[in-house]
């Protein structure tokens, strides 16, 4: 049997490796961001391709560190601020790489996604504690585990959707005037951005619904109250409501164009408020 000193030294060593891997992943996302910016400035596909490759390398590093963390903690590593932000960054990058696989020489939306992934990693590294500590009794629940996993997955999907939607809103006026050449977009495929954003919301919406439902089930099981109108809960409900408006607006001819795009972007702002925004407000 290992003695205490050996256990402490092993755990400290593993944590040091994990932290270095995490910093590496955020630096790679940062590199991807710089390359995407170069692509936007120069319109050269080589920078776009390099940026997408960097994102892929970042994803591999991030997935590796999540596996390492699961091994260290002996549980699903999605339950603290530090862990959930890491999960968010991975989900956002994977979702973007998956969604962009069909596009040929289109890299524009990647600038937003790489910025978000890098931001989430840096926020986790600067503001979160990487300590692996036992969970308080209230958090020892499958409902809580699923709540966090799905909530952050849905937030990541919405973030990618908003990034694509933002690219659509920025590029479409130029495309209509015959500009935006070099970004791989034209009057035909620019509409695919709008459709992709919609499909991503369609994918994320049931996830967010289940996240809210599992959060309520967890609260009911632990404290006997499924809803208490605390700011976090309320912001997640605002997010859900805004995406409900978005989905309904897609069925109304007058709203299915740019107004729907605006609802999608507002939804993403609500996502930001539901997590870092609420924490930031609480710290004031």
């Amino acid at each position: 049997m290992l003695n205490y000193e050996m256990i402490l030294s092993r755990d400290s060593y593993l944590l040091a490796i994990e932290l270095r891997l995490f910093w590496l992943a955020s630096l790679i996302y940062g590199l991807a961001l710089i390359l995407y910016i170069f692509h936007i400035i120069t319109r050269a596909n080589v920078f776009g391709k390099a940026a997408a490759t960097a994102m892929l390398v970042g994803v591999i590093a991030q997935a590796g560190l999540i596996v390492l963390r699961a091994f260290e903690a002996g549980r699903a590593p999605f339950q603290t601020l530090y862990e959930s932000l890491s999960w968010f960054a991975l989900c956002a990058s994977v979702t973007y790489l998956y969604e962009s696989r069909r596009w040929k020489n289109i890299y524009f939306p990647g600038v937003f996604v790489s910025a978000l992934s890098m931001g989430a990693c840096l926020y986790a590294l600067f503001a979160g504690s990487p300590a692996i500590e036992p969970l308080s009794p209230a958090l020892q629940s499958y409902w809580f585990e699923w709540h966090v996993i799905l909530a952050f997955f849905s937030y990541a999907v919405f973030a990618v959707s908003a990034s694509i939607e933002a690219a659509y809103l920025i590029l479409s006026p130029f495309v209509k005037k015959g500009g935006a050449t070099g970004y791989g977009v034209n009057t035909e495929n620019i509409r695919d951005f709008h459709r992709s954003a919609f499909r991503l919301v369609l994918f994320g919406y049931p996830l967010l619904t289940f996240a809210i439902f599992s959060g309520a089930a967890w609260a009911n099981n632990t404290w006997g109250r499924y809803w208490s109108w605390d700011p976090k809960e309320t912001w997640s409900l605002i997010t859900w409501t805004v995406f409900t408006i978005y989905l309904h607006s897609k069925t109304i001819p007058a709203l299915k164009g740019w107004p729907a795009s605006v609802f999608n972007i507002i939804g993403f702002i609500c996502v930001m408020m539901a997590f870092p925004g609420v924490n930031w407000l609480a710290s004031l």
Partner: peptide, 10 residues
């Protein structure tokens, strides 16, 4: 610590 100068310790 991320860059390798120092280590966290339990």
């Amino acid at each position: 610590i991320g860059l390798g100068w120092g280590s966290p310790a339990y």
